[in-house]
Design a protein around this nucleic acid. Structure first.
Lengths: 215, 215, 215, 215
DNA sequence: GATGAATGAGAGTTCATTCAT
DNA sequence: TATGAATGAACTCTCATTCAT
């Protein structure tokens, strides 16, 4: 059992090392030797566990995607049992999501996905399934509940969720220059607030919404 | 003169071929020989004109970015002299932008940018400058005019532009699975319409806006 | 142990092959593939053992220089316990040294050294240290002993050694046209005899020396 | 005629540039483009004048060899009409020769010769003919005259010349580490004096010679 | 005659992958 | 199982050489 444990640990170490190196270098530029070093094992050991550079990549991506998704889903928590101030709840969720999106690991995953989507079309399946789509669905669920409860006016909850996320992520991407620049907390919060403001204009129940402030 | 012309043509052919191959293969996987073939010249000719694989990449990216930007700016045309139906104008612009964004060339540019941003941080300068930022500014200009004319209510035109673009691009990216899936014209138009709807709720002048339809 | 042995053998084979090929082609014209062939290994194996073409060259030169020096030092043997006929002893040493100097390996080493001294200034250190300087010193030691024993008159043994070697090597170089032409044994011996003759005129103790023969 | 003049000048410029570059880089590492730059002409012009890289090398070497030989022959001047102090005359000649031998151009020529003698065996003919052999002969001529005049005792003038040159050049080569280290004037003169001392012991007429000083 | 441009051939180096231990 | 060593296949880049002007 100690052995089996050790084996599993080693596999995990390899996957972690692989993601780290792929994130740093990109798929093609990453070399297996470097991954082996990062994981603290010998090169053939990598092959013993994961056959191929390609297989290695797929598994590393999937693992990373899973862990990223988990965090994001958890970030929706405040909408599950929303307090009396809906706007505050949405802003809280926005702030969390935006921070996760700007996280290094998350950026790297996105970059790799964009980069290698042509060479590994199948990865999209592995990742998207546990990626934005699932997040959007989960959010749509929450918005539907809120609409039923009369606290929102999202007749098409899927679209509402889509727009909510777009209003968060879009500006973030632009301002962070694709994850290149770090953004201060204040600016992150402002992005989230603005997103919620626009969102509520469109999807807020009567009492909640309000015009954009005059200045 | 014929010679100079020939030289310029050849350079252009190389840059075009380079972008094509880079788009197909990614930076590292692309090999200069293939680029040379694509451009119809011998390998050393590529080096005569562009020194380096890296230099080649930079120039190809810049050229592509320029041509993409031009198209996008042109797509804002309908907002320059907007007709009586503002919503229709916005939808027209949205539909154009979304199609340009979904265009193969544009997707490839974005993919490459994401993919290589860590290895070529300087490219961001070349591309962003003639990229989303400029588009956002131009759009903000139009929105400001419309606000002054009393046809919109975008007190912060920069943010309004940011949100308008986000509402277009975000859903597109999700649905097209990062440019992987082709999307039909009907769906594209629907995305644009939905974006405009949400946008006008938040930034429309009183008369123009309207609640989301009941279903 | 068999493995370690095999590894060492392979390294030695590479160094030998390298020297052979460098000697035949010169540094720049030698190609690593040819060296690999000569050593009976694959090209990357060469790189596994010796990093670089340059490193390969340095090590091959050093190894060759060491083996050449060893032979030369051994050639001084007759002066360690000189028999009654000093002239004969010197001629014997001269004859040996001159043959070693005319040896293919030795010539090649010299040629390569001259050829690449500008590109590899550091090699001089590796080689000279185990090269002419050391030989000259060892010879000077012997001459000093002989002087103390009253059988020579070399008040400045360093210079005496220098001149002895010069009188051997200089004419050899001229006659062999820089190692290009083979020289017969008779001529080699004659060169050695002449060198000893001149040497003893200058540094012989009274009884030993003698004027050059009249014809 | 101006044109013909210009043509000749250009050819000379190319040959000079070629030697400079070959001296700096070695034959294989030198590239024709660099030679063209050095000569201030375009690459094809080099080919127009000298067909080949190899031809270029041969001609450049020959030209350099000729100019070096001329200087050396001129250095024998003091022995043509020797003053009353023969030792002084020999030392003067020695000092001159040694300086010429240590000259950059001369060292480069020697280096290139050694380096490429295997690839260009024919160059030896071009160069040796106008090289050490001719110098040795010219010197032997002078020594023969001096012997006839009773001022020397060189029964075999060829060998005497050979030894004289060897005693000069050998120590120089050792000390300068094959032309790598610069040597001060004082040391150069000392080398020449020592060479003459040994030489005169062996080949001096009775009155001139003298034992090496006691210390 | 002189040159800018183009090319065919080839070299060093790297890397994913496989044996043998 | 884990590893040191070896290799086949590529890839970037350089260079001598030749056209067309």
């Amino acid at each position: 059992m100690a052995t089996a444990r050790g084996r599993i640990d080693k596999r995990q170490a390899i996957l972690d090392g692989a993601f780290t190196v792929f994130a740093r270098q990109g798929y093609a530029q990453a070399c297996v030797q470097e991954i082996a070093n990062e994981a603290g094992v010998a090169k053939p050991t990598v092959y013993n566990h994961l056959t191929d550079k390609a297989t290695l990549f797929r598994h590393a991506m999937q693992a990373a995607a899973r862990s990223v998704l988990e965090q994001r889903l958890a970030a929706l928590q405040p909408l599950t049992e929303p307090g009396p101030d809906l706007r505050a709840g949405l802003e809280e969720v926005g702030a969390r999501l935006i921070r996760l999106h700007a996280d290094d690991r998350s950026c790297a995953l996105r970059r790799l996905l964009y980069a290698e989507i042509t060479h590994f079309p199948d990865i999209l399946g592995l990742v998207v399934e546990s990626g934005p789509q699932r997040l959007s669905q989960a959010l749509a669920d929450r918005l539907a509940r809120l609409t039923l409860a009369g606290r929102l006016n999202a007749t098409d909850p899927d679209q509402a969720a889509e727009h909510f996320l777009a209003l968060l992520i879009g500006p973030l991407e632009t301002r962070s220059q694709m994850g290149t620049r770090q953004i201060g907390d204040a600016e992150l919060d402002e992005i989230a607030r603005a997103a919620v403001r626009t969102f509520l204009h469109a999807f807020g129940a009567e009492g909640v919404s309000g015009r954009h402030p005059a200045g």
